[in-house]
Structures are given as C-alpha cells and as structure tokens.
Amino acid sequence: MSAIVLVVALWIVQGALAAAMCLCVLRMIQGPRAQDRILALDALYICAMLQLVAFGVRSGSTIYFEAALIIGMLGFVATVSLAKFLMRGEVIE
C-alpha cells in the first residue's frame, strides 16, 4: 500500500521537476539577456538537486544526498562566478 502511494507521489514529483527543468531551459534559450540565462541556469541547478533528492527517496539510498549537496555547491559557484563575470566583463568592454 505504502509502495503504491510513494510510487504515485514520486511520479508526480519527478514529472513536475522535469517540467520545471524544461521551462528553465526554455527561458535559457529565449534569453533575452545574459542575466536571464544565468538566472535560468541557477533555477535549473536547483531543480536538478531536488530531482536527486527524489531519486534518493525512490531508491531508498542516502548516497544521493551527497550528490545533491555537490550539485547545489556547483550551482552556487557557477552562478556567482557568472554574475561576477557580467559585472567585470562590462567594465573591460
């Protein structure tokens, strides 16, 4: 019984997160400016991290949490450095 509940819930969760990732990619393609694309990348990282948490529950294994933490950290560093580049890149131009 609880397996059915969890499987249905995880279908909804992973479907919603996958749709969210598609929407982020759409915004990343549309732009229109660099800051919009970086914002979409940040949201994409968060969705990927939550997707890993859902995978962890589905497989019943805690190993995915470390992976989720690392994805979160990579997303943070990537977005900060890209935002920094936006400011400095303009100065050089």
């Binding site: 919603a16 929407l23 914002l39």
Partner: peptide, 16 residues
C-alpha cells in the same frame, strides 16, 4: 514532497 515539487514548478512557470 508533492507540495515542494509543485511549488518549484510554479517558480519555473513564473520564470517563463
């Protein structure tokens, strides 16, 4: 988890 995932989806909809 469903609430969390749906809120994330709403955020992505807002992004678009």
């Amino acid at each position: 988890m469903v609430i969390g995932a749906l809120l994330t989806l709403v955020g992505a909809i807002g992004l678009v």
